[in-house]
Structure formats: C-alpha cells, structure tokens
C-alpha cells in the first residue's frame, strides 16, 4: 500500500448525495480478476453517454476541475461491498475523498487501499463544494499527521477523525495482513481455548 502523509492539490466537486457503489463502478465491470483497469470505468454511466461518447456535462469531464481530491455529497459509497469502487477511485488517480458521511464498508475498503476518506461537517462540506465549484484552482491540503484539512492558505481549516491504528498504517504504508500475521500465535491460542463451540 502506498504511504499517505500530506497531500496538497486541487479538487473535483461531485455535488451529489448518496453516491452508491453501483455508480462508482457498475456491476458489469466486475468481471476482472485483478485490481487493474477499474479507473477507466469509474462513474462509467455518468462519464459516458450511452453511445460511448464523453458526457461533457459531468464534472469529471470538465477540464476546469483537476486534482487527486474528490469532494462528494453526503453518504458517499453506500450500497454493495465491492472493493472495486475503491480500486476504481484509486485507479483513476484519487487519493482523498471528502464528504460529510461515508458508508461503513466503503470507508474500510478505501483505507485498505491507501485512499483517505475525510469526513467533515455538512456545513463545511457545503461551503467547500461552493468554493471549489466557483474557484476550481483552489488548493486543498490534507495533513494526515495533524489530521487537518485546510483550504487555500488556511482560509478555512477543519480537523478530521481517523482511527489511530488506520492512521499509523497509512502513514507507514503497511496493511492489516502484515499486522494479523504478526498475531498468529495469539490467534492459534485463541482457537485452542474457544469457549463458544
């Protein structure tokens, strides 16, 4: 997993609530057996018209909006548990998603793939969406160490929460498997004295 310590970039405003994982990556693209290539089909049915041509009205296709930070409406990532949604976002180039609420499984999947979900208040989100929509070159800085999000030279700053364990993983670029393997003895001991079976 790639390390994530501090990121400064412009952002893409996706002002839609309840973006579900079927929109992030439609089911018909789930046939692949590796993790590559999902970025090409991120938001497939919003990015492209039925005939395969680009939908210029969709924000990801608007050249004004660039950057590896996605700012999305409330309740992002609801729906299925498909981790392909996180792979698609990472594959497309996003490292951070900002919203006022994330679905549980999506949040976990994102963190397991080096994609940082940053949850802010609904008011902060509304102001942020407005600001970056109006001024696309607004720079946003995410400092994971300090757990802060600051907009354009600290004109707006907020803090965010992250599980301390997950934070350590992201800062160092290691994952849950490494950790669990280090606990093998405890797990085997637990199996020996399971009380519930």
């Amino acid at each position: 997993m790639e390390k994530l310590v501090r990121i400064t970039d412009t952002a893409v405003p996706l002002d839609i609530e309840n973006v579900d994982t079927d929109q992030i990556i439609p089911a018909r693209f789930l046939k692949a057996t590796d993790k590559n290539g999902f970025g090409d089909n991120l938001f497939r049915d919003w990015r492209f018209q039925k005939d395969g041509s680009l939908n210029s009205a969709f924000v990801l296709n608007d050249p004004a909006y660039q950057g590896n930070i996605l700012v999305a409406g409330n309740n992002f990532g609801c729906g299925s548990s498909r981790e392909h949604a996180a792979w698609a976002l990472v594959g497309y180039g996003f490292r951070v998603v900002i919203s006022s609420f994330f679905a549980d499984i999506f949040k976990g999947n994102a963190l397991n793939n080096g994609l940082l979900p940053v949850q802010v208040s609904p008011e902060f989100l509304a102001a942020l969406l407005q600001r970056i929509t109006a001024t696309p070159d607004t720079k946003i800085t995410i400092d994971l160490e300090a757990q802060t999000l600051s907009v354009a030279d600290h004109s707006a700053v907020t803090t965010f929460n992250i599980d301390p364990y997950k934070k350590t993983c992201l800062l160092h670029g290691y994952d849950d498997i490494d950790f669990l393997l280090s606990k093998k003895n405890a797990i085997e001991a637990f199996e020996q004295q399971r009380t519930y079976v």
Partner: peptide, 22 residues
C-alpha cells in the same frame, strides 16, 4: 456481515479481521 476484498484476504491469511466494535 459483508467485507471487502482486502478483508477477504485477511481472513484467508489469519481467519481474523481487525474491527472496531459497532
């Protein structure tokens, strides 16, 4: 409960998951 593919790999490797109690 449902899990993501990274977690599928975790269970494969250790029969365990790292979770916050809901």
């Amino acid at each position: 409960f449902g899990i993501g593919t990274s977690q599928v790999a975790q269970v494969f490797a250790s029969q365990c998951l790292l979770l916050q109690k809901p």
